[in-house]
Amino acid sequence: MAVSLAMKRKSEGKKVALGDLDIVNVYFRSREKAEVLEEKGIHVVSSTLGHRSGLDLPAISSEIRNYFFDPDAQVILDVGGDKAGTNALVMFRQDVLSVGYEMIFTVNAYRPQTSDLAGLLYHLEGIEFVSRLTVTGLAVTTHQLRDTTVSDVMKGYDLAKQLSEKRGIPIRYVCALPHVLQELPEDLEGEQIPIGMYLREEWM
């Protein structure tokens, strides 16, 4: 979602920087696509030691801070998974608070741990507790990879709606493959983000 959102913002003519804060797991991280993103003009910041995928180190470059204070830049921070992954965000908390932020919580109804309202609340509250920041919006990222259908996305949307009502947080994004987005009902809340599946090779 972070890579696809960055791509969309860039296509709208914005100056975009993507900070990959995932230090929990070295597989399937946004930085793997740094070359593709940089070619499009999106600056990627990850470890102080470069984007190499074999680096299993909790090292994040503070270079991303340069972009926080650039009024023209749209900064996207890709924070790993759950509350453990959220620890990496804490180092930027003061900056994030001073420049203002949106914190997006993704809703994937097909992940067993977030398949119901209780699971979503557990993770959302864990992330807020660790980051001491507030989730300001929800993103529907419910999918079945290339086989995703409208009903899969709607399943996620309906679950996100429950969370939205429970916590008073708006649905800000609905993410899906471009052809699925075209078939979604028109009255859905939130901006549509076409998912590029950039991290999946053709055989995956």
Binding site: N25, Y27, F28, Y110, Q144, L145, D147, M204
Partner: peptide, 10 residues
């Protein structure tokens, strides 16, 4: 291998 371990699939 690492890919199958880390890859998410239905």
């Amino acid at each position: 291998d690492g890919v199958i371990g880390q890859m998410m699939e239905p």
